[in-house]
Design a protein around this nucleic acid. Sequence first.
RNA 1: GCUCGUGUAGCUCAGUGGUAGAGCACUUCCUUGGUAAGGAAGAGGUCGCGGGUUCAAUCCCCGCCACGAGCUCCA
Length: 651
Amino acid sequence: MNDRKTLEERAAMSDIERLRHSCAHVMATAILKLWPDAQFAYGPPIETGFYYDFDMKHRITPDDFEKIEAEMKKVAKDNQKFEKKVISREEARTLAESGRLGGLAERPGNVSRYKLDLIDKIPEGEEISCYQNGEFLDLCAGPHVNYTSKCKNVKLMSVSSSFYMGDESKGQLQRLYGTAFESREELEQHLVALEEAKKRDHRKLGKELQLFHIDEDVGQGLILWTPKGAILRQELQNFISDELRKQGYSQVFTPHIGKLTLYKTSGHFPYYKDSQFGAIIENDEFQKCADAGCSCSEIMQRIDGVSKRLADGINERVGKEVIPADRVMADDQILDGFMLKPMNCPHHIKIFDSQQRSYRDLPVRLAEFGTVYRWEQSGELNGLTRVRGFTQDDAHLFCTEDQIAEEVLGCLSLVKKVLTTLGMNNYRVRVGLRDPDGSKFTGDPAQWDKAEAACRAAAATLGVPFSEEPGEAAFYGPKIDFVVKDVIGREWQLGTVQVDYVLPVRFDLSYIGADNQKHRPVMIHRAPFGSMERFCGVLIEHFAGAFPTWLNPEQVRVMTISEKADEFARSVFEQLRTAGLRVTLDVEAEKIGAKIRTAQLEKVPYMLVIGQKEAEANSVAVRHRSRGDLGLQSVEAFLEAVTLEVAERTL
RNA sequence: GCUCGUGUAGCUCAGUGGUAGAGCACUUCCUUGGUAAGGAAGAGGUCGCGGGUUCAAUCCCCGCCACGAGCUCCA
C-alpha cells in the first residue's frame, strides 16, 4: 500500500491477480451477509492470494471461516456479474455517505468511512468507478473477472490485524487472508505445497533433530546451540575459515561489550538506541547519580552525553554538525557505561588503529565470527531467522581507494563460492546505490561515483542477475546484497558487502602513503552468511534437515542385525571413529527394520548394516538415506569414499 | 510494540467446574530378527506463571510470560 497504482498499472493485472481481486469482493459480499455492519477499506490481490481489510464489531476467528466460505460458495454459485460503473466524484461521495459503498444496501448512520477517505485520495481527473456483483457495491478501479462463478476455488487462510494505510494512528482493522486459483487442482497443489513447507520449517526440524533450543528463562530470541546444531555451525565456520585463509584474511577475537564512548564515536549510539540493548552502567556510577539526586531523565541525558573534544573532532572531520551541541557536556557529567555490541566494526577499527599502518600493509583484512546483540521487537522474533543475539561471519577490510574494486570482487567471489558449495543457486544480487536526493548520504560525490562503479563492475563479473537500486545504499556507502530464495519462495537477505567512507573519518583512521603523507583508508564490511543463526535456519529448510554428509551432525550409523554381530560392528565403529567420521553404533535389541527406520527419520546419510554375513566377509552392507541399499563394500572402500565425500564437501 | 489466536507427559495432541488421557519416545524384561515400526510391563504431568470468582478452577474472569499469524520496524 505504498505508492498509488496508476490506472494503467491496474489494467496490467495478471489473470490470477484479477481473479483474486474478484475473490476479495466475493469474500466481502459473504462477510456482509453475515455481519452487515462491516466497513471495508482495502482488498488487493497479493503474491499468494488476497486479503480484505475491514472493521466491524464481530471479531473473526478461524471458527468463522467455514461459515464465510459457505456464503462465498453461494455467491459463486449465484454466478453474479461483475458490473463496472463510472461515476462522478460527487456520486461516489454520496454513495459513501449513505453507507452504500462496500455494502449490500444503503446503511443509514453507517458511513463508508474508509471508502470516503479513499475517494478523497483519488487524484483530480482520474476516472472513478465502482463495481457491483449482486447486491455488493464497492468503490473499485478494477479490473475483475466477468462472473462470480470463477471465484469458487477459494480457501480462507488466516486472520490478523492491520492498520489503515499501514498507519498505527489511524486505527486497527481486521484483515482476512484467502487464496484462490483458477482450478481446483491448482488450489489443492498450493495447499499441499504449504504442507510440505511446514514440514521443512526450521523451528520444527530444529526441535526434531535437536539442532538448537530457545529457552524462556534465557530469553526470547537468544539461541542455545545444542551439540548437533553446534556441529552444523562449526562445519560451516570451518568451511568459511578455510576460504578466508586462502584469501589472506587475519583472524581476530574481540569481546562482546565495549564502552559507550566507542559507539558514540561510531555513531551507533544513541541513534540506533531503539534497536539496542540498554546501556550497562556501573553500580557506583548509578549511586553517584542517586546521591546527587538526579532524575531519570537527567540520567538518560548523561548517558547520551559526549565530551566537547569528541564532538568537535568528529564534527570537524565529517564537515558538519553530526553531534549536536545539546549533547555536549563536561566530562564529569557524562555517564560512560558499556554496551552489548550491536556491530563488530568499532572493535575491528580499534585493532586496525592499534598500530601505524603503511600503504604496504594494505589491505588489512580482519575476520571474526563476532556475536552482536540487537533489540528486535518481540513480534518480529522468529526461530533462527530473526533473533536478538547472533553471530556474524564478519570481516572488515581496510584498503586504499584504488583497492576497492579488487577487494569488493574478492568478497563477492567468496559469497558466490559459499552459496555454490551449498547448492543455493536461486539467488539474486542487489547493488544498492545512493539516493538521487543528495541530502540522504554523506561524503564526497566523486568518491561515491568511484565506489558505485566498482560495485557495479564487480557485480557484473559474477554472472548472476543483478539489479541496481538507487536509494538502497547504506548512508555511509554503496552495498551489494545477496538475496537468496528459499524453497517456499521467501527471500532472505543473507550475504552483504558494504563500502564505507564514513567510519574511517569518524575514527580518524589513517595510513602512511608512498608520498610519506597520511591518507584515509576506506573500509569494506562483509558477511557472506550474514549471520550464522539466520543462515543455518535457511539451510535447515533448504535441505529439509537432510544435510550433505560433510555438514550432517551424524554421518554414519553402524547397526547390527543381531547380537552375534556386535563384536565386528564395534570394530567397524572404532575404525570409522578413529578416521574422524561422526559415527554412532546401534546395538539395541531391535529388528533391523526398526533401526533403519529410526536412522532414516533422523536423516543419517549412511547406514551400515552388519550381520554374520558381513562379519565373515569382513565387510559392511551400505545403505544410503536417499539412494537406498548400495550393497556390500569393504570397510576400507567405504571409509575412503565417505572421507572423500566429506573432504570435497559434496552435496 | 500492536491485534487476534495458542499454551495439558520429552514430542504430537484428546479432554473435563469435582486435582487428567492417547499415540510415539523413555526404562526394564522377553524376542536374536536381513533393509522404514516384534511383544509385554513400568515410569513420567502443581494442566505456562500470578491473581480473582466459586464449597470446588486445568476448564470461567483479569494480569503477566512464551509461542504462532499478520501489522509496524529493521544498522
